[in-house]
């Protein structure tokens, strides 16, 4: 089952997308704690799209979520500028200094999701991430 949401997003809309993905994750079998982690990571990913790809402006973001092989798969696509930094941190040890006021988004995604990839396909930025569904 694939669930898809196409939203023209500005920052104030992001919590709505987060709530949608949290409900979708629970329907796929994640518990509340894991669904919250996925919600947080999706919000961080969309924040990055708005802040870096669309440079703070409104833009289309397509968000898809589905269950496959006991994993929740998430795909987030924007058509904004290619971000300068595409490679995520390799592990949570690369979280920024606690005193820093920037740079936590991708590190949070890396720490809380099981898999993360970011690619540029044509004029789109494609972020894929997944989370195992525990039995």
């Amino acid at each position: 089952m694939k669930k898809m949401m196409l939203v023209k997003l500005e920052a104030a809309d992001i919590p709505r997308a987060g709530d949608w993905i949290e409900r979708a994750c629970i329907s796929f079998g994640l518990d509340q704690t894991e669904a919250f982690k996925v919600k947080t990571c999706v919000v961080e990913a969309i924040n990055n799209s708005i802040e870096h790809a669309y440079e703070g402006q409104v833009g289309n973001v397509t968000m898809s979520a589905w269950e496959e092989n006991q994993q929740v798969k998430i795909e987030i696509i924007d058509e904004g500028r290619e971000p300068e930094i595409r490679e995520p941190c390799s592990n949570s040890d690369e979280l920024p200094d606690p005193y820093s006021e920037r740079g936590r988004g991708l590190a949070i995604i890396r720490a809380w999701m099981d898999d993360l990839s970011m690619t540029r396909t044509g004029s789109s930025n494609v972020l894929c991430m997944s989370k195992r569904i525990q039995q």
Partner: peptide, 9 residues
């Protein structure tokens, strides 16, 4: 009940 990295900042 929800905070993102901007909220942490």
């Amino acid at each position: 009940d929800f905070v993102d990295s901007s909220g942490l900042s």
